[in-house]
């Protein structure tokens, strides 16, 4: 035993290997089974993917660091379920590359904020949170209304998402830029085909209140309004794990 360790230590490379092996075991044992498992992620046949506009909104959510203050993971605790809604299921974030569960609630959980408030409320709130919630400490995001949304690169984004396993079709990728514009301008020609590709329940409206101009605000509000709405699996599953 002792001779063995002395050799390990005298020979630096062997010492290095020892550290790697000892350290890797825990990660491998815990993470590997999550990839073989089927029951980690419940089946949800009606799960839909993010539209290009929602995906762009999600990127803005990440860019502005919203995840630093808002969680998107309702735990299996009674008070959380009563405050925020049915607890989050693994399947709900299966198209989230990366996940945005968060680790801090400076603001409330927003996993189920979709359709809870009007678009106008969100726009006003993002423009200056203290106009609608006087005690809020959330930053004001005025530039979202000023900045035009960049859409020409959206096909590339969808393609990258497909490369990591999200089932975007060729038609979705091809029409990504047009669909992004169309979703927020339902009267325009660009709107044709969006619901065909993403489902009849897709929100088609000028999220920032102005259909002529596609802003970053449109994208972010579109994303907020779909949160928790990609599947109804959580509403349908019996919430048996509370307090477990």
């Amino acid at each position: 035993m002792s001779e063995f360790h002395r050799k390990i230590e005298r020979n630096t490379m062997r010492f290095v290997l020892a550290i790697i092996v000892v350290a890797s075991i825990g990660g491998i044992v815990e993470i590997a089974p999550l990839f073989t498992i089927k029951s980690t992620v419940e089946a949800a046949p009606n799960m839909r993917v993010y539209t290009p506009l929602e995906l762009a909104g999600r990127s803005i959510y990440m860019r502005e660091g919203c995840y630093a203050c808002h969680s998107q993971m309702i735990r299996t605790l009674r008070d959380e379920v009563e405050r925020y809604g049915p607890y989050s299921l693994a399947v709900e974030s299966q198209y989230d590359h990366p996940m945005l569960w968060g680790s801090k609630r400076t603001g409330p959980d927003i996993a189920r904020v979709g359709e809870k408030y009007s678009d106008a409320w969100h726009v006003a709130h993002l423009y200056n949170p203290r106009d609608v919630v006087p005690e809020s400490v959330m930053p004001a995001y005025r530039w979202l209304l000023r900045n035009e949304l960049r859409i020409d690169d959206l096909p590339g984004h969808l393609r990258a998402m497909r490369d990591v396993g999200v089932p975007y079709t060729d038609a979705m990728i091809e029409n990504a830029a047009k669909d992004a514009f169309g979703q927020a301008a339902p009267e325009s020609d660009a709107a044709v085909g969006v619901t065909e590709r993403y489902g009849a329940a897709t929100h088609m409206r000028a999220f920032d209140g102005n259909a002529g101009r596609l802003t970053e605000m449109d994208a972010l509000v579109a994303y907020l309004q779909i949160m928790g709405k990609l599947t109804d699996a959580a509403q349908k599953t019996e919430q048996t794990k509370i307090g477990e």
């Binding site: 035993m1 000892v22 075991i25 825990g26 044992v29 815990e30 590997a32 089974p33 073989t36 498992i37 089927k38 029951s39």
Partner: peptide
């Protein structure tokens, strides 16, 4: 298959921990 992986993870981890501790 999955059950095997999990069972292995759960039991073997403990065994490994004890063996390593004794060795060290």
């Amino acid at each position: 298959m999955h059950d095997m992986v999990v069972a292995f993870s759960k039991s073997w981890g403990l065994f490994y921990l004890v063996a390593l501790a004794v060795g060290v």
